[in-house]
Write a protein that binds this DNA or RNA. Structure first.
Lengths: 186, 186
DNA sequence: CATTTTGTTCATTTTTTGTTGAACATTTCG
DNA sequence: CGAAATGTTCAACAAAAAATGAACAAAATG
């Protein structure tokens, strides 16, 4: 593919060549960034490719195109596409417009507050909602009365535990936003 | 195996039978608990078995033996063993002593504060440490000087980004404990 | 001691998750 | 319009993670 590019006769558009090409290999420093972020990704049990992509953007002073990401990370288009989608859904990456180039150009969002709140919004909040739903079902099943459970003491215990779960939910709804707020200034 | 048990002639020891056996099937309410906790486990990308075990203990008024867990959840001994180990490492499950029974008896820890702090201690803290280590390496690679990177502007940018990472670490070290503290009272 | 009970380890199998790449839109350009 | 550029989707493949169960260790029991 790079061969095809080279073979294609082109007028040298002064700057464009340097901008478009760039080295296909990661610099030592970039490798360190990638290494670091891949480690972080793994620790959150996110796909490695996410870490790679984010690292590359984090370490880039200029917005990078889809193609640049694919080339520099030697990664499939499919992974890049899906990785970028996820990163965007988390608000960890933004697409910026670059004049004179119809391709998307991506930039890393580096504000910790935004990253965390994106993570909470996309990963944690849904789980909490799902939990709330199930908790209702549980309460219903429980409300079927002591008839469902043999002894009343047992029944009372379960009711107590269900309440404990509600307490957890309340805590989560209160303290997670507080945590985000805590990350605000420097 | 269950056949072998049945074939083995036994004197009925009055109470012991009921204590030892218990229903091998989950009650509808227990199923709801398991369902809920398996969902939570998945959302944290923890193995399903963790959720099952914790749910069972959470919904049990009495400490359960290893064997009871294996039977009620119809799960392999291997999974139960590993699951319990992990849960204990998180402080989510405690082993209690029960007189006249040499087997371990397990109870769920239900204080959200303890669960979260265990999670942070076992899963997040190590990641942060690893990150710190890599960040040092990165800083070193960067300190190799602008010589390593072509332009000084680029170099300055990378230095800036590395500092940003240090900021993240500081934030994490400060706010995570604060979050735990926030979960304390009711 | 030999035996049973209780639980752990670990090689293997199963399941889940991530990656790849080619086919398929869609848009731009000449 | 036809060709090229740019991305996305998805079926097939690969890698990683989890579950299984039999072999093993340790402790208690008789």
């Amino acid at each position: 593919m790079s061969i095809a590019l080279r073979l294609k006769p082109r007028v040298r558009p002064a700057v464009s060549a340097a901008v478009k090409a760039g080295p296909d290999r990661l610099s030592p420093v970039e490798i360190e960034f990638v290494d670091l972020f891949v480690g972080l990704a793994r620790s959150v049990k996110a796909p490695k490719s996410l870490g790679e992509i984010y690292a590359l953007l984090f370490a880039s002073a200029v917005p990078l195109t889809f193609d640049a990401i694919v080339r520099k990370l030697a990664m499939s288009r499919g992974s890049a596409s899906q990785g970028l989608r996820l990163l965007r859904s988390f608000g960890a990456v933004k697409a910026t417009y670059v004049a004179g180039d119809r391709r998307d150009h991506f930039v890393a969002e580096t504000e910790l507050r935004k990253l965390v709140s994106g993570f909470l919004r996309e990963r944690i909040a849904p789980a909490l909602e799902g939990g709330a739903e199930r908790l209702e079902r549980l309460t219903t099943a429980l409300a079927a009365g002591p008839s469902a459970t043999r002894r009343t003491a047992e029944f009372e215990f379960l009711r107590h535990r269900a309440e404990r779960l509600q307490g957890w939910q309340r805590m989560a709804r209160e303290s997670l936003p507080a945590l985000v707020k805590m990350l605000d200034p420097s």
